[in-house]
Computed example of a mutant assay.
Amino acid sequence: MKLPDNLVFSIFKEQDARIKKALSEKTLDVATGRKVRALSDEPATTYNVIELKKEIAQLSQHSQNRLFADTNLTYADFTLGKMEDLVKKLYADLLRAKNSATLSEDQLNALAGGFDQTLRHLLDRANERLGQNYLFGGDSLTIKPFDQNTLNYMAGSGDFEVWISENSRVSVLLNGNRVFGTNLYISRLSFNSPTDGFVNPGSITLQVGLNNYTINYGGAGEPQNIQELADYINTNLGDRVRAFVSRNANGTYSLALSTVEINASVSLVGITGDLSSGFENPNIFQAIERIKNKLDGGLHPDEFDLFSLSRSYDILALRRSEIGSSLSTVKNLQPTQENLDLILKKQKSDLEDADLSESMMEYTRYRIAYEALMRLVADQKDLTILKYI
């Protein structure tokens, strides 16, 4: 039984439009590789895709920061390692000089020349740059850390930090004042002899960690000179603080202090009497320069000079261990971030990208359906679709 022309035409128009739309969509799927191409297509899916893109972008930034941190911290560790070697050699040379009381003034001057050359190498290392940024310039980034003449720290007061994950950040460019700072203290007031008596009695109040210690001097029954004061401190606070009488480059003597523990903090919170002019707190480079100046003046090193170099080496080793801990955290984060990146991109692809093999199969199915529609019309009217129209 033949169908009426208007019914055939109506069915044809409806099916033709549906199949052509489906063919067009599958053609775009295959051509673009995307099944979601506009926000209006699937709002819920598009929203999820946008959120995933944000997560991927944030993860990408964290990964870049991690790589930046890895590069800088690795180079900082390498640099401090080279500085350790230089300070260790200085200590060995100074130990030989101290144990050789027969060294002539010329020999001491020659040793001072070696100290000066090594000090310049150390300073160059401390002022090392990676790209445009100074490794030990802290958060100032591009300010040279140490002055070539005064050896004072001139750059940022804090570390430069980057976020390497949503919840953690790491110091990348370090505050050189902390890296190369010491807990060595040398009195500004000096004496011609360690046994010269105090003129004005007073006291020194030290804060070591959370505890305060007050040492009185110059009064009845109290230490009367810096030698007695150093002996008193070593006897009564020797498990926390070490005291020395150290000779200066000009031949005078000063009281020198340091903590027993390398990482213990010490503050001189109150000083009265002769020593009220306070104490110098040299960094590693200034401590080495002080020794160099003594040798250059023909003076033999003393116990505090050896202690200063030993403490400088220990400080560098401690800073390397701190950097190593941060570096370990940074490196351990790499596989986690790489795996998360794969997961997020897979989720985005599942939502956004077309399955090409499935799209090709659908395209073929719609082509067959279209051809079947053409045959149906031809069979009903015994003519081609072109003739029918």
Score class of each variant (00 low, 15 high):
4 P>E: 13
5 D>T: 13
14 E>Y: 05
14 E>V: 08
16 D>W: 03
17 A>V: 11
18 R>Q: 07
21 K>T: 03
24 S>E: 06
24 S>G: 06
27 T>L: 08
28 L>E: 05
31 A>G: 03
31 A>S: 09
34 R>P: 05
42 E>F: 03
45 T>A: 10
51 E>I: 09
52 L>A: 07
52 L>R: 00
58 Q>R: 13
59 L>M: 10
60 S>K: 12
64 Q>T: 14
65 N>A: 05
66 R>Q: 15
70 D>P: 05
70 D>I: 09
71 T>D: 13
78 F>E: 04
79 T>G: 00
83 M>N: 05
83 M>Y: 06
84 E>I: 11
86 L>E: 12
96 R>H: 08
96 R>N: 12
97 A>Y: 07
98 K>A: 10
104 S>Y: 05
106 D>R: 04
106 D>L: 14
108 L>G: 04
112 A>Y: 01
117 Q>K: 13
117 Q>M: 11
127 N>S: 06
128 E>H: 04
141 L>P: 02
142 T>V: 15
144 K>A: 09
150 T>I: 01
151 L>H: 02
152 N>T: 05
152 N>K: 12
154 M>T: 14
154 M>W: 06
155 A>E: 01
156 G>C: 06
157 S>G: 09
157 S>P: 01
159 D>K: 06
162 V>M: 06
165 S>W: 12
165 S>F: 14
166 E>F: 09
167 N>G: 01
172 V>K: 05
172 V>M: 03
181 G>S: 13
188 R>L: 03
188 R>N: 11
192 N>F: 10
192 N>W: 07
193 S>G: 05
195 T>K: 02
197 G>K: 13
198 F>L: 06
207 Q>S: 13
210 L>M: 11
212 N>W: 01
214 T>R: 12
217 Y>D: 03
220 A>S: 12
224 Q>P: 08
224 Q>F: 06
225 N>M: 02
228 E>L: 12
233 I>S: 08
237 L>Y: 05
237 L>T: 08
250 N>A: 03
252 T>G: 03
256 A>S: 15
256 A>K: 02
264 A>D: 15
266 V>R: 15
270 G>V: 00
273 G>R: 01
279 F>E: 02
283 N>S: 04
286 Q>R: 06
287 A>F: 05
288 I>H: 09
290 R>L: 08
291 I>T: 09
295 L>P: 07
296 D>A: 04
296 D>C: 00
297 G>I: 12
299 L>K: 01
303 E>K: 15
305 D>C: 07
306 L>Q: 10
309 L>D: 05
313 Y>E: 14
317 A>H: 13
322 E>G: 08
323 I>F: 12
325 S>H: 10
329 T>C: 00
333 L>F: 04
336 T>H: 02
337 Q>Y: 02
353 D>N: 11
366 Y>I: 00
367 R>C: 03
371 E>S: 15
372 A>Y: 06
372 A>F: 00
377 V>S: 14
378 A>C: 14
379 D>V: 13
380 Q>N: 15
385 I>C: 15
385 I>F: 11
